[in-house]
Nucleic acid binder design. Structure first.
Lengths: 222, 222
DNA sequence: CAAAAATGATAGTATTACTATTATATTTGC
DNA sequence: GCAAATATAATAGTAATACTATCATTTTTG
């Protein structure tokens, strides 16, 4: 089947030159995801990325101000994509409880797809989000960058799912806390399963993450 | 009242020269906590620390291999201290449920004390743990460092509290997941409250974090 | 008091994170 | 189809970082 003509829009503030409209820009996105996944965000540099795509680092600087902004861009792209996945998963479903559980599923299930946009490997991108995305907002400039709207898409996802929670249980006092706990928790548990298994009970066979966080949410709304 | 003669032991692997037994070492610990809290871990350098304590950077390198190891040291110190706090909070309490709730309290309440060790400001240290500690294990060397025991004290805290959970409800399948979710979740919510309030419902007045995570744990064990 | 250990002072190196400049290629608008 | 505009490549350069090395001086300790 043909792909949908979908484009994920990213806030203009996050890039110097729009990367998804030129060949070089797409190569930068594509290869940076592979490279960050492979060597980690700390060891990742524009020089190495340049070498990997056969372009000088100065060309990459025309697209992104620095590697921090590239990470913010990728994170924002990811959350826009997740929002889209939630919209699709909950479309035409009447029951708010059902919509909530579908949303929690999107937020906690492993990401296996990689078909929406040819130059973005969604599976690798989700690995990066799990391992590195906290670094995009755990910085000394977080307040300033938040004001500029750098984290808008993440906040929108939390709001969208929290709104379903409120629909279901209007008196519930901690909707955003619960949803952000589910999101960050699921990321941590996936990371722990791979690197610090003593901190989790999840492994690749038992699918415990979705079960655990679904149960957690259900416990709160009943 | 006199202070207890308590010393927090840190794994020998984490330092080159034991910092808590010399004046310079204690100054390094003390000032690094202030400086990391003030300018953030990324901007923190041994050169700046040296300037702050009037010692050359080369002297600091004799105590810690690099700033990453210093962060791992501080994190390990913190978890040993939290373990001690949990032990005290749960001592002589018969009921496992009560012990569990006390432990969750230690893990989620804001840290206001600063009296145990004169050269460690526990309040500032807990800010660093909230803002920066994930960076100590979100690295490409995490597996290797985990093998060397760098994260032992964190794992021991999770195990200690999980064991109480298991005592209470032996059939519960996700004890480590639940406790690590509480710990990381509480840290995130504190960070969000200060920097990304749209992601939480906590603020300094409502004391929501302890309530929320206590309720979460109780939901799971009833 | 001598030997050992810790600290200070200073210098040096490779890498990082950029900025700047000029040349070459590619796109576009008439 | 060609000139003008724009994008990219090639190259060089700079300040800061993250160390390592050396030697002199001070402090501790047996």
């Amino acid at each position: 089947m043909e792909n949908l003509n979908i484009q994920i829009e990213v806030n203009k503030e996050l890039y110097c030159k729009k990367p998804d409209t030129s060949e070089l820009g797409q190569k930068i996105l594509s290869k940076s995801i592979e490279l960050i996944d492979e060597i980690g965000f700390e060891a990742f540099t524009f020089k190495k990325l340049g070498a990997a795509i056969n372009s000088p680092e100065s060309s990459i600087y025309r697209y992104f101000k620095n590697k921090h902004m590239l990470l913010v861009y990728l994170t924002s792209w990811y959350w826009s994509w997740i929002e889209y996945e939630i919209v699709i998963a909950t479309a035409n479903i009447e029951s708010p409880k059902e919509r909530l559980l579908k949303s929690v599923g999107v937020l906690t299930k492993p990401i296996m797809e990689n078909t929406l946009i040819p130059y973005i490997n969604e599976t690798l991108l989700s690995n990066i989000i799990i391992s590195e995305s906290i670094k995009s907002y755990h910085t000394k400039d977080v307040d300033e960058e938040n004001k500029k709207g750098y984290f808008k898409t993440y906040k929108r996802v939390v709001k969208r799912v929290s709104d379903i929670l409120i629909e279901l249980k209007p008196e519930f006092q901690y909707p955003h806390m619960l949803i952000s706990t589910v999101i960050e928790g699921a990321h941590h548990q996936k990371y722990f399963a791979e690197h610090l298994p003593a901190l989790t009970d999840f492994n690749k066979e038992n699918n415990a993450i979705e079960k655990f966080y679904t149960e957690m949410v259900l416990n709160f709304i009943k």
